[in-house]
Nucleic acid binder design. Structure first.
Length: 824
RNA sequence: GCGGACGUGGCGGAACUGGCAGACGCACCGGCUUUAGGAGCCGGCGCCGAAAGGCGUGGGGGUUCGAAUCCCCCCGUCCGCACCA
């Protein structure tokens, strides 16, 4: 063994040790208090990139720290191994996705080990394991049985590049696919959905109690988009403008029922089922032309076009009756009214809605204000608070009161009712691709749609497939897969060829980790009860909506079905979102080709230096530029610790005399302060300052070691040992190696040190003396100094007297023992 | 447009509850080691000023004995969401 710091040799050795010894394996009957640390399920794209390193370094630090604190820490790992990249690669190279995926999992696993991240590898799962597929399908079928899955025709987002449909969440604001970047178009297709909207209210309410970044909670609230309003009918008007009683009224939804008296027209979505019925013959041609011009456009395109409103809507020729005023008002179609929100029809109130205002001007409709704007208001539509006007029985009421009164009136008249709507829509889970979890349903000519019996799971993917350059799923033409028997009648049937969105796989993996050996259920409720919810979940903010919302839905649904413990309402108690790594000002990503490979750094400076650099460079939750990383500085620091701590080294304590000096007391206090400080910083994710703490303490030790009147050997030894303990979660290899050489045994299994509170305060402190808030002197005083003595000491200062100019201070503020402020 | 985060030396950042602004690191400068250093150790390092001292946390105002921190207005950067009825 060399006495020089040689990360390569020690890191490989300890990585092997942790694996061989099973140091971080934890059983479900472990007597220690359970603590579940989880980093987000990675997609295995090959060796780890810097983003992985950052994520898994944070997680690993916590795993090791909590273990030293005495917890039985569950630290599992698995791989989100289904998905398009592997299938696209298969299309290009002809290699089956399973082969690439397995190789990538191996590569990523090796990377994680190389950065020193430790897991209970016995619990590893991958989405494409038949044993995992089985339970993903089992959950689907249980949801199916419970009515949480349905198949329905719906306008969907079709990505021509991916040859599949996408969930709304997977379409970017500019209307392109988040994966391929292709422009998504809109078509009607028969698809599978998870009924996530059943849980909309609970998903919203339960956010309040989660210890998550406020930013993520706000994003989720917005995505769920609860709104309160009223739904009511607009009677269809006859030629005289009178309400017809022989035709169903047109249902509209509004959040502003208080402005009903200002409704001067109404607007229908172009795909509304009643367009044909209501359009008058003279308008039919124009309406049809408008409808077909809108038909091909994606929802996002329709909602984000800024074009002038006269082109974006047409009159139907029909009129409806405003039930508030009894007047007949025109009915239009407009592209921005969507069939998928509310009732697909709106009442338009130009006085209180700018878009309606603009539309009214473009189409010659009346404008009536029903909320009194303030005197200085010079805008057009007024959306603020104010008393109702021109509104009969609502006049004078504020917005909230007027809303309530309007709803009460609608209900009393039998016209409508108060309602709550959500922006959240059901989760479209089917994908027309091969490399995903097959949807376990068959279609029988006689019995129709039939779920696959639970005992027949898993429905696995056939391996003998050919990938077409078109991207069309090979399942659609694979006779062996397609042909099956009906579980109901035993006759011939065809399998569903759609597979599941990969977000399904990541919606329950954290539960499987609790008991991956379970063979009678996806996990045992007891194990889930023990470990869940995850005490600390760690990942990227890019999953703020999709993954986290879906996982929350699954957890709630599984609990309600009795699969998960009934009290388990949320999967992740605490969430930490770490920042991303940029290079040259842009996000590092494979597609941008600006990746910095961790391997070179691991080869040269080692895993501990890379980990430390990630921790030190910035607060963990912030984005960071790769240019700002100080790997060399961290490597240099680690070598400094090595020289200080390695037995027989140039600076180690055994070279010193055994004579105790005053320095012993000082260094002992410093050591206790270090423990208190690092413990606090670890607890609040202040890893960058923790690294500063290691460095400061090391600098202090260096000065003492080289001082003539420094501490004696045992005191210094104890200080160095403590440094190794508190650094062990951050730089595990170096600390394990030095600890073993100095003390024997394993630093990661010793108890976390505890600071003696008495040693955290000195007998004296430096008291600041200010004159008019400016620091003028510093005086060393006893910690228990009283106010009068402190004031006297401040006034006695010669430096201070120079600023008082002989006059007594007008006012004296004393904050013992730290500060005296003299005001003149 | 709406929502959020943020703005501190040459650079990344620190200052947790209103009380020493600039910890720690990088870069730079100097010294030591008989000095081969891209090694090691020690020291310096906000700006102006010879000094005393003054000025300093994006800009402007305010609260306070005291503000990087709290309040108001403005400017700028980044990130979400975006014609949702």
């Amino acid at each position: 063994m060399s006495d020089l710091y040689d990360p390569q040799s020690i890191e490989a050795r300890w990585q092997q040790y942790w694996r061989d010894e099973g140091t971080y394996e934890v059983d479900n009957d472990d007597p220690r208090p359970p603590f579940y640390v989880l980093s987000m399920y990675p997609y295995p794209s090959g060796p780890a990139h810097m983003g992985h390193v950052r994520n898994y370094t944070m997680g690993d630090l916590l795993v090791r720290y909590r273990t030293m604190r005495g917890d039985g820490v569950l630290s599992p790992i698995g791989f989100d191994s289904f998905g398009l990249p592997a299938e696209n690669a298969a299309i290009q190279t002809g290699t089956h996705p399973r082969i690439n995926t397995d190789a990538n999992i191996e590569a990523l696993s090796a990377s994680l080990r190389r950065i020193g991240a430790v897991y209970d590898w016995r619990r590893m799962v991958s989405s494409h394991d038949p044993g995992y597929i089985r339970w993903t399908q089992w959950i689907f079928l249980r949801f199916y049985e419970a009515g949480l899955v349905y198949r329905g025709e719906a306008p969907v987002n079709w990505c021509p590049g991916c040859q599949t449909v996408l969930a709304n969440e997977q379409v970017l604001p500019d209307g392109t696919c988040e994966r391929s970047g292709d422009l998504v178009d809109r078509r009607n297709m028969e698809q599978w959905f998870y009924r996530i909207t059943t849980y909309a209210q609970e998903l919203l309410d339960d956010l309040d109690d989660l210890d998550w970044p406020e930013k993520v909670k706000i994003m989720q609230r917005h995505w769920i988009g609860r709104s309160e309003g009223a739904e009511f009918g607009l009677p269809i008007a006859d030629a005289d403008g009178m309400a017809r009683t022989d035709v169903e009224p047109l249902g509209v939804y509004t959040t502003r029922p208080d402005t009903g008296f200002g409704m001067t027209f109404a607007v229908l979505s172009p795909e509304h089922p009643r367009v044909d019925e209501l359009t008058t013959d003279d308008r039919r041609g124009v309406v049809e032309a408008f409808r077909s011009s809108v038909a091909g456009r994606s929802e996002i395109d329709r909602l984000s076009t800024g074009g002038s409103l006269d082109k974006r809507g047409v009159a139907t020729g029909a009129r409806v009756v405003n039930p508030f005023t009894g007047e007949a008002i025109p009915l239009f179609l407009a592209d921005y009214v969507l069939m998928t929100y509310g009732t697909g029809a709106i009442m338009a109130v130009p006085g209180q809605d700018q878009r309606d205002w603009d539309f009214a001007l473009a189409h010659g409709c009346d404008i009536v204000r029903t909320v009194q704007p303030p005197p200085d208001f010079d805008g057009e539509a007024y959306v603020g608070e104010g008393p109702a006007i021109n509104s009969a029985f609502l006049d004078g009421l504020g917005v909230a009161d007027a809303k309530a009164a309007a709803i009460a009136w609608l209900e009393a008249e039998g016209l409508g009712r108060g309602t709550v709507k959500y922006r959240l829509r059901d989760w479209l889970l089917s994908r027309q691709r091969y490399w995903g979890c097959p949807i376990p349903v068959v279609y029988c000519d006689d019995c129709g749609e039939q779920p696959v019996p639970l005992d027949d799971l898993p429905v696995d993917l056939p391996n003998d497939v050919e990938f077409m350059p078109t991207g069309r799923s090979p399942l659609m033409t694979h006779e062996g897969f397609l042909n099956t028997t009906c579980p109901n009648c035993g006759g011939g049937a065809r399998r569903e060829t759609d597979t599941m969105d990969t977000f399904v796989d990541s919606s329950w993996y954290f539960l499987r980790f609790a008991d991956p050996w379970s063979d009678g259920a996806p996990f045992t409720a007891g194990a889930a009860d023990r470990w869940l919810p995850v005490d600390q979940y760690i990942g990227g903010v890019e999953h703020a909506i999709l993954h986290l919302m879906y996982a929350r839905f699954f957890t709630k649904a599984l609990a309600d079905l009795g699969v998960a413990p009934p009290g388990l309402r949320e999967p992740f108690r605490r969430l930490f979102t770490q920042g991303m790594i940029r290079l040259g000002g842009t996000k590092m990503s494979k597609s941008k080709g600006n990746l910095v490979a961790p391997e070179e750094i691991l080869d040269r400076q080692g895993a501990d230096a890379l980990r430390l650099a990630h921790l030190q460079v910035k607060p963990p939750q912030e984005d960071v530029d790769w240019e700002d990383f100080g790997i060399d500085g961290c490597a240099k620091f680690l070598a400094r610790v090595w020289r200080l701590a390695v037995p027989g080294g140039p600076l180690t304590a055994d070279a010193r005399t055994g004579v105790s000096t005053d320095a012993d007391e000082v260094i002992d206090r410093e050591t206790h302060r270090l423990v208190a400080r690092i413990t606090d910083e670890y607890d609040r994710w202040s890893y960058n300052t923790a690294v500063a703490g290691f460095m400061e303490f090391t600098n202090t030790l260096y000065r003492w070691v080289q001082a003539d009147d420094g501490p004696h050997g045992p005191t210094l030894d104890s200080a160095v040992d403590t440094l190794l303990m508190v650094m062990a979660p951050a730089a595990p290899h170096l600390c394990a190696e030095l600890w073993e050489r100095r003390r024997g045994g394993h630093v990661h299994t010793v108890a976390w040190p505890v600071a003696d509170p008495d040693k955290l305060v000195d007998d004296t402190v430096t008291m600041i003396v200010q004159v008019n808030g400016r620091v003028r002197d510093r005086i060393e005083v006893p910690v228990d100094i009283d106010a009068a003595t402190a004031e006297a000491a401040a006034l006695a200062s010669v430096r201070v007297q120079g600023f008082l100019a002989g006059d007594p201070p007008r006012k004296v503020i004393v904050r013992t023992p730290g500060l005296v402020n003299l005001v003149v």
